[in-house]
Amino acid sequence: MIDSCPATWYDGRTSRGREVTVRLTGETLVVSGEQLSASYPLAEVRIDPPLGRTLRALHFPDGASAETGAADFLDELQRRQGKPPLWRQLHRWEMSPRRALVALAATALIIFCFVRFAVPILAQKVAFALPAATEALIGRQTLQILDRSVMQPSKLSRQRKQELTALFRAVTASHPERQGWRLEFRDSKGLGANAFALPSGIVIVTDAMAELAEKDEEMAGVLAHEAGHLARRHALRHVLQNSATVLIVACLTGDIVSASSFAATLPTALIDAKYSRDFEREADAAAVGYLKQQRIPVRRYAETLARLDAEHHKERDAAPRLGEMFDNHPMMLERVKDVLAAE
């Protein structure tokens, strides 16, 4: 066994370094060099835990220290001190490429499970616990932003609006929380034929959507789908889940270089697509349930979805719009299939 090592000695009072030899004699460490000789009980010497390939120091009780690269000797000393092997274990994990990969896989797995399973549950709990006033505020502000950016006042006739509002009432009649839910009409070039639910019970139908789904039977399916979103607070949960994901990804990747917080955007977008798919499926199930109850053929709803998809596809071919980097065309086909299967 090795019982000594060369080291650079610093007395802690001046910065001058001296070449010495540190030797273990029984339970005592003896430091000897030119015009220098000191001995310390091993138990009172603090030894730096291993870290990369950095020099490690022995810290002596009188404030002196000795720096050395003799890792094996120091490990042996630490074993003799009876110190728990915690840091040595940590060092082994850090230094072995295979274990680093295991740590990487474990990290990725934990993050994945958390984002996939824990975040949606937490978001759901929070969404239902949030005071109604807060949700109303979020809904109002979202609507304002949309009004300012992509939506214009509706050009539908007053009669058509009244018909659709009555239909919305009928569709939501069986929901216990329908109070405060309302239907809004907007015109929008950017959004095309579309209907969506905002927090606090706002459903928006675009003029193009009202034209595309002329018959009440078709519109009932669309409105039941949106009512499904409302009852499950999907809009709010979506916002909460995405903020949580952005926070997590930014925490993990953004702490080294500030510019790298861009790295947070790509995984977030991918996870976002997954979240919205789950929500759409749930809302479709709600729509199918309603239609069956009303004895309206589910096929009508599937046709409406297919037509919506075709409409969007046509527009996209004409001029690709920003923000549709993640084409949800396959998702639409899948949804149509699912709805037809439910028939």
């Binding site: 990487l104 993990l252 990747t253 702490d255 080294i256 270089v257 510019a259 790298s260 861009f262 790295a263 790509l266 995984p267």
Partner: peptide
């Protein structure tokens, strides 16, 4: 250095962040 760091960290989903820090 900063430009290539940002690109590397972005494309590796953050895995090259240690490399970027050491290099800088």
């Amino acid at each position: 250095i900063y430009l290539t760091n940002a690109a590397a960290v972005l494309l590796s989903l953050g895995l090259l962040a240690p490399w970027a820090a050491v290099r800088t």
